[in-house]
Write a protein that binds this DNA or RNA. Structure first.
Length: 366
RNA sequence: CCCGCCGUAGCUCAGCGGCAGAGCGCCCGGCUGUAGUGUGGGGGCCGAGACCGGGUGGUCGGGGGUUCAAAUCCCCCCGGCGGGACCA
């Protein structure tokens, strides 16, 4: 049972929650929740394939919210994934991918400490659709369009099917139907969360506190790790994706050798912090805004090994050129292998999951 | 969450320190005597719309402040809308 009460306790839990977070809307509201011991929180994710380390950023925060006293729900957004044509629109595969994500959270020590809800169950009530209509009634078309995450470059309005426009309304409805106090997500979920806050005021529902985690840059240095599926030319898109996606992300099921190879191949310009995926991993996966022992193995002719406890120190040395991309990559890869992916893989990719993972992998690569 | 625009008659809006307005609507009347209704034919009755005249219209979103004077200027709040919000 989480201890409730003292101001000191609230402060430390506050620090835990806002650590290495991109943004909290609002800090005052978050504090109020912590003062009463937490509340109900959630994270919704689209089961779209294997778990990549970019998702660890929110997964760690999910765990910290549990530790801070929140009763967390993981929403497997199966219908949402279906709308975005993930996994070829195969609902069974989408469910399998969701199961895999639950495994990863369990591997992080969260087994039995959070609730899992499938979108299919949530949607299976008349009340859900009543709420969705109420949400829709208070949302203009322009506002929905603005909340759309898809439709980046090529996918213009004319080639979107209408389900894509229902998507943001569902995200908002999910929040209301789960009766939440807090919504967790990457900063890319900001639009949906803000829509939920706006609409909440209009229809007299609770306004969720929004906690947004940073996003990891793609290993290739362009865009983000989670490449959005293109509804454009399906076949071409699938082929392009299958070739590019495995290279742009590290999956928790990757072997040690795959991890090392991917990190070594990653975009990592010397002295450059901007959009640097390797530094990004160091910042948001390894250090995460706190003190961590991180050893950069460096050939003695360049100064020998250095130990960093704070990300800022590592970044400073990298910018100054004292840490070479080669050194950084090798060290980050080793850390990922031993401390991050290794433990997760041994649980989430255990033998009895082999069949499940193979199906998901095949579907993405197809 | 941030920025901006807008809240004035039932509706759409103008007015932006000096009597609260226009168009549309609504009500009354006039004019027309038509469409329609009704018939075997004729006649009569009822008669919309258009047009003309008259009338009906208001916590100027709410609260506070400045001023001799506030719809008008300032502050706060409420409501609506649009845009922004990692990256593109």
């Amino acid at each position: 049972m989480p201890a409730v009460g003292t101001a000191v306790d609230v402060d430390s839990r506050m620090r835990l929650v806002i650590r290495d977070v991109e943004e909290v809307v609002t800090l005052e509201e978050l504090r109020s929740l912590l003062e009463v011991g937490g509340g109900r929180g959630y994270l919704g994710f689209e089961p779209s394939g294997l778990f990549h380390i970019g998702w660890l950023v929110w997964a760690y925060k999910f765990r910290e919210l549990v530790e801070a006293g929140f009763r967390m729900t993981l929403l497997a957004a199966t219908w949402h994934a279906w709308i975005n044509d993930k996994l070829g629109g195969d609902m069974e595969l989408i469910r399998a991918a969701a199961r895999h994500v639950v495994d990863v959270l369990d591997a992080l020590g969260l087994e039995g400490r959070f609730q899992v809800v499938y979108a299919e169950d949530l949607v299976d009530s008349a009340e859900y659709w009543g709420t969705l209509l109420r949400v829709a009634k208070h949302t203009s078309m322009a506002r929905v369009r603005r909340a759309l995450t898809i439709m980046g470059r090529r996918a213009e309005e004319s080639e979107s099917d209408f389900s894509k426009f229902v998507y943001p309304l569902m995200q908002v409805t999910d929040i209301f139907e789960l009766d939440l106090d807090l919504a967790l997500g990457g900063i890319d979920q900001r639009k949906a969360h803000m829509l939920a806050r706006d609409v909440a005021e209009k229809i007299g529902r609770r306004k969720v506190v929004a906690v947004h985690t940073p996003l990891l840059p793609s290993l290739q240095g362009i865009s983000r790790m989670d490449i959005a599926a293109l509804p454009k030319d399906e076949l071409m898109a699938e082929i392009k994706m299958s070739k590019s996606k495995p290279e742009s992300a590290i999956f928790v099921t990757d072997s040690d050798e795959e991890i090392r190879a991917k990190v070594m191949r990653a975009y990592c310009p010397p002295r450059d912090v901007e959009g640097n995926p390797v530094l990004g991993i160091a910042k948001h996966i390894i250090f995460r805004g706190s003190e961590v022992e991180f050893v950069v193995e460096r050939p003695s002719k360049y100064g020998g090994p250095v130990t960093y406890w704070r990300y800022e120190d590592l970044e400073r040395d990298y910018v100054d050129g004292r840490v070479h991309p080669m050194d950084l990559k090798a060290s980050v890869a080793e850390y990922l292998v031993k401390k991050v992916v290794g433990p997760i893989r041994s649980y989430a990719a255990r033998p009895e999951r082999e069949e499940l993972l193979r199906k998901i992998r095949d579907a993405v690569t197809r």
